[in-house]
Design a protein around this nucleic acid. Structure first.
Lengths: 227, 227
DNA sequence: ACTACGGTTGAATCCTGAA
DNA sequence: GTTCAGGATTCAACCGTAG
């Protein structure tokens, strides 16, 4: 189980993984927002927190902490209105939340047009399993990286490859093993591959798992071309 | 009680203020981090600690919500590791938290040099009393503004005047009444004055209250010069 | 005017010893 | 033990001065 995209429920896969076998968990889990509700006609009444929302998806965090090596770290994307649920789950899994990192998307989404600041940032929680030290220069708490746009978008929540490269380079070492339990179109795995890290990607949707596999292959191929 | 810097405990003053008499509360309360500014052993003088900074200062929020007019709004500074305490207090006061605004300081502080992303942002909670609409163009959730530095620094946690002007301009109308229960060196009041808003500043320290009064006077004087 | 350099500082945190 | 306060330490950015 290495340098592989596994098509399965990550909760099942994580259970089968050995303790302390991963150096970095970098993932963008479902935020638990019912997107449908944002499109209600009576927009004036729409609020970020809706009572009948699905729960933020945090069940994987306990096992993610278990498979994390001593001195390993976690980077978990989320959004401001659900960040506390993720932070609490990370702390409950006995990881130390060290930083709130802001991804500056440099371009806003929609949201409530009348009463909400145009959302142009996401939160990334940075947590460590015990003692930790950056491999190189200390990164800053705001990371600027333009959002993936329009035609090149494969997955609705796709993160820019440059952002993933930056984060992986900033917090992990060459040869490290990187796990993404919600790997989607595989951006984390592609960035890991390019930077000489091992990767384990898990994706429940067969369609996206297949796309992710192809994207990693393509990256490998292109990497060889440049040698 | 208008266009005035009141030197007193804001909890006392707030109690004496009438309901729904303020359009915007813009403030930077003690974060509750027991902060010692620029502590240097090699200098005989050092800046005094902030009063009441042992735990997140949220007691004022209930009364701040009461004095807020319908359709009025609140902008409250805090830091990522105490933001949930402030958010909860704001929600408990029956305000609707609409946005998490990020102040990009464009320059980092210290923090844990080995395991923490260099902190270069603060949080600003934006909440409204019921229905709300921006007076003009919808602002973005990240506000960039260079930190006030060095010699021009009057208060240890002084916010840039440009940042305050931007926020006041973005969320309030001319002629509105703006309240800052922790006005410190008076930056909020100066910005309000310049932008043609009424202001009420409250500051517990006589030293800073006097500095704030002078800064507002100075701003008034300079404003007249430009006419 | 521009660069090189040293001094200063920041909404810190760690360590250590005392209470 | 545990908490607490004071002194120590850290680095990148910025500022002023000198070259």
């Amino acid at each position: 189980m290495m340098d592989e995209i596994i098509c399965a429920d990550c909760l099942e896969v994580l259970k089968s993984m050995p303790d302390k076998s991963v150096d970095l968990v970098l993932t963008d889990p479902p935020y638990g927002i019912d997107y449908q509700s944002a499109w209600r006609i009576d927009r004036a009444e729409w609020k970020p927190k809706i009572a009948n929302d699905k729960e933020p998806c945090v069940a994987w965090i306990d096992d993610a902490a278990r498979v994390l090596a001593d001195g390993g770290s976690l980077l978990c994307f989320c959004r401001w209105d659900v960040e506390d649920a993720f932070k609490k789950a990370i702390e409950d899994a006995d990881l130390v939340v060290r930083s709130q990192v802001i991804w500056d998307r440099e371009g806003h989404g929609m949201g409530d047009l009348h009463a909400q600041f145009a959302p142009c940032h996401d939160i990334i929680w940075f947590a460590t399993n015990g003692e930790y030290a950056f491999p190189g220069k200390r990164p800053e708490s705001i990371v600027r990286s333009p959002r993936v746009g329009g035609l090149s978008l494969v997955h609705p929540n796709e993160k820019p490859i440059d952002l993933m490269r930056y984060l992986i380079g900033a917090v992990s070492n060459e040869g490290d093993t990187i796990l993404d339990p919600f790997c989607g179109s595989g951006t984390t795995c592609v960035a890991a591959k390019i930077l000489g890290r091992k990767y384990i990607g898990i994706e429940i949707s067969p369609v996206y798992a297949e796309i992710a596999r192809r994207r990693v292959e393509q990256a490998q191929y292109e990497e060889q071309l440049f040698r």
